[in-house]
Design a protein around this nucleic acid. Structure first.
Lengths: 299, 299
DNA sequence: GTTCCGCATGAATCGATAG
DNA sequence: ACTATCGATTCATGCGGAA
């Protein structure tokens, strides 16, 4: 048996159904795999082994949003729609694993709708622990002016766990001391990195790696970063630095990351770059194609 | 009757019970008043006229926090404790008024407690509209670390209203436009300084007068403010810029602002500076004394 | 090669209009 | 009365073309 076959067999043991029925599967030397599954989320989740995933990170379609692509879910039906998925996610997650849910309630009839807080309550009744709520403070938010509200500049990143003793590698997300570091260096987007690299003689930023190992501190529970702006090929729910941060925080190398609404594949790309196995699910074949392209470029 | 007596009588008409039983009362020429009432919140609220307050802004004792001073409210009893107060606040608020509640759930037994989201649900059942949730993103929040979580870098600023047609003066909180984008490649470090101040959408703490004559834009629903640096005389729940922002946004001159847990008087000081009437309530005589001192210094 | 400028476009929301 | 659709509003950002 040659090396490739050995790797394949090794993966098969862990995820037999997935690896025999993926719409995209890349296995690197060393056995690291990246899989994309096209189809209904609940159905494809049933193929995944119980107690096998270290981190679930996803941004499901928000209520009434993305109607064009996903059909849209009515706010009043949102909990009912998501709860069975949450139950299935709990099945596949390891006991020390973490589930990060990116979500925000919309304004309905002049009021903030309660489907998000209703979902928190409902998930707790299904045994999920609501351990933390991170905030994504968006550097630039959608414009708009209304008589009774301003633009939405933040989203929720709800953390759920099965056990109080979940895995957390806090050292992996430490940031350099100082305020400027939290607002800029901590969650650098690719563009920011380029911008900082091109800034010569401005005091800092020429080589960010110089800061590694210096006076580092732990971050807090606010992520301050810009949404990925108008990429014409794909529109992503969040920038790659977001899954990057949570993957470093909540997983080890060779762990498995799952995004059941993977969209254009941002989570998969981040996982691959960090040397984690990943599984991405999406109902739309077009998105699976886009995600595959991005993975191949970044392979 | 002299001028002072005329003013006094005028105020009496509006708030007879308060003005005859305040623990501190300052009436300026023009009739603007600042009152402090010491005593149990519910009891003192009953002295306030129905439909008389334009803005309620407060940071009640968080569950189990400030135990030394307030006795602490157990998380499980929080809704039960606050709901009668919320009902009374709804009585005193004008139909076009706004209630801003600064609150954050604490972590209990490794989980975020649900008393805040339970309170939102309970207040809606009492007729309050949950119209918006602003976030206070704390600038310069100190690093901190627990086994399962990072330091809290944000708090909720829940907005409740009685009517969908509440008063809102959006122009009063406009901030300078981020025209750094046009010149972002030149003079990078200076531009970055300006960028970080303007892009976060609050516009606090910097010399906005430099921007007079330039275009102003509307902010978003994230307030990016530093907590008040440790004052040895008093510890305030929030910096003065926080009530300042909401008072400008939700009131006109000569309106009445209420803080039923006024503590060291930050809300009262902000209201006074902006030419608004204010009523502050606190159960602790020591806090009333501190608030009085601050008001006299800033009078 | 740089710098500058114009322009399209986003997890949006409200109010009015139409069925 | 209740739902569906559409236009107006708003601004940070990347990209592409021009100087």
């Amino acid at each position: 048996m040659n090396t490739a076959e050995t790797i394949y067999v090794e993966c098969m043991k862990q995820f037999p159904a997935i690896l025999s029925d993926s719409d995209y599967l890349d296995v690197e030397l060393g056995g690291l795999f990246t899989a994309l599954l096209q189809g209904d989320c609940l159905k494809r989740l049933s193929d995944i082994e119980t107690d096998s995933i270290s981190l679930i990170l996803t941004s499901p379609p928000y209520a009434d949003q993305r109607k064009m692509t996903y059909g849209g879910i009515r706010p009043d039906k949102y909990v009912e729609w998501f709860l069975p998925i949450a139950v299935e996610l709990k099945r596949v997650l390891r006991q020390d694993g973490t589930f990060i849910l990116n979500i925000k309630e919309k304004a309905v009839n002049g009021e903030r709708h309660t489907y998000v807080i209703d979902l928190i309550k409902a998930m707790r009744e299904k045994g999920w622990l609501w351990t933390e709520e991170y905030i994504w403070h968006k550097k630039n938010s959608h414009p708009g002016k209304w008589p009774n509200r301003f633009r939405d500049g933040w989203e929720r990143l709800l953390q759920f766990n099965i056990s109080k003793k979940f895995f957390m590698n806090q050292e992996a997300v430490m940031i350099p001391v100082g305020d400027w570091s939290r607002t800029r260096l901590a969650h650098l987007s690719e563009i920011d990195k380029r911008r900082d690299d091109s800034r010569v003689g401005s005091g800092f930023g020429k080589n960010i790696s110089n800061w590694i190992g210096r006076d580092m501190v732990y971050p807090n529970n606010v992520l301050y970063l810009a949404p990925e702006a108008g990429n014409k090929k794909h529109s992503a729910a969040f920038p790659e630095s977001l899954p990057d941060w949570f993957i470093r925080l909540f997983t080890n190398s060779n762990d498995v990351v799952l995004d059941p609404f993977v969209g254009s594949g941002t989570t998969s790309v981040a996982a691959k770059r960090l040397g984690r196995n990943s599984i991405g699910i999406d109902i739309l074949a077009e998105y699976i194609d886009i995600a595959r392209e991005r993975l191949e470029i970044n392979g």
